[in-house]
Simulated scan of single mutants.
Amino acid sequence: MSNDSNSNIATADALTLLLHNQHALGAAIEEVTRWLSENGVEDVAENAIAAMETLDTNARAITDAITRLRQS
C-alpha cells in the first residue's frame, strides 16, 4: 500500500468520525428544537432548524469526500 493510499485512508477515517459527530450534533439540536417548539420559543427553534440544515448540507459534502478518498 502506498503512502498516498495510507494518507487517503487516514483522511477518510478522520472524516468519517467527523461525520458521526455531525450526526450526533444534529440529533441533539433536533431534540432541543422540539423542546423549544413545544415551549413557545418558535424564533429560536427556527434558528436551530437552520443550523440543522447547515449540518445536513455539510454532511453530504463530507460523505462525498469520504467516498472519493476511499475510491482512490
Rank of each mutant, 00 (worst) to 15 (best):
H20N: 12
N3A: 10
L15A: 07
N6F: 02
N8L: 03
D64P: 00
A27N: 12
N8W: 03
A65K: 14
N58H: 14
E53V: 06
A51Y: 07
H23C: 00
L19Y: 09
A12N: 04
R60V: 14
A12D: 04
A45T: 02
A48K: 06
Q71T: 08
V32L: 15
A10R: 14
L25R: 08
A48I: 00
T11E: 13
R34V: 11
A59V: 00
E46G: 02
N39A: 03
L15E: 07
L69I: 02
R60N: 09
R70N: 09
S37I: 01
A48R: 07
E46I: 06
L17E: 14
A65Q: 12
S72C: 04
N8S: 13
L19E: 11
M52P: 01
E42Y: 01
L18Y: 10
N6M: 14
I62E: 03
L18N: 10
S7L: 14
L69R: 06
D43S: 15
R70Q: 13
E38A: 13
Q22S: 07
T16Y: 08
T33L: 09
L36A: 12
M52G: 03
H23P: 00
L25T: 06
L15Q: 11
V32H: 05
A14C: 02
V44H: 07
T16V: 01
G26S: 11
N6C: 04
L25G: 02
R60Y: 09
I9T: 11
E30H: 11
A50W: 06
S72M: 09
V44L: 15
T54D: 07
L36K: 09
L55E: 01
G40V: 02
D13V: 00
S2G: 15
T67K: 12
L69S: 04
S2K: 10
D43E: 15
R68W: 03
E31S: 13
A51N: 02
N47Y: 07
D64K: 13
T54F: 09
N8P: 01
A59D: 07
E31Q: 14
T11V: 08
L55A: 01
E46N: 13
A48F: 15
D64Y: 07
L36Y: 07
R34S: 11
H20C: 00
M1F: 11
T54W: 08
E53N: 13
L69M: 04
T63Y: 04
D13T: 10
V32M: 10
V44M: 14
A48W: 11
A28C: 01
H20A: 13
A50V: 05
S5I: 15
T11Y: 03
N58I: 05
N39T: 08
L36E: 08
M1G: 15
S72I: 08
S5W: 05
G26W: 03
E30R: 08
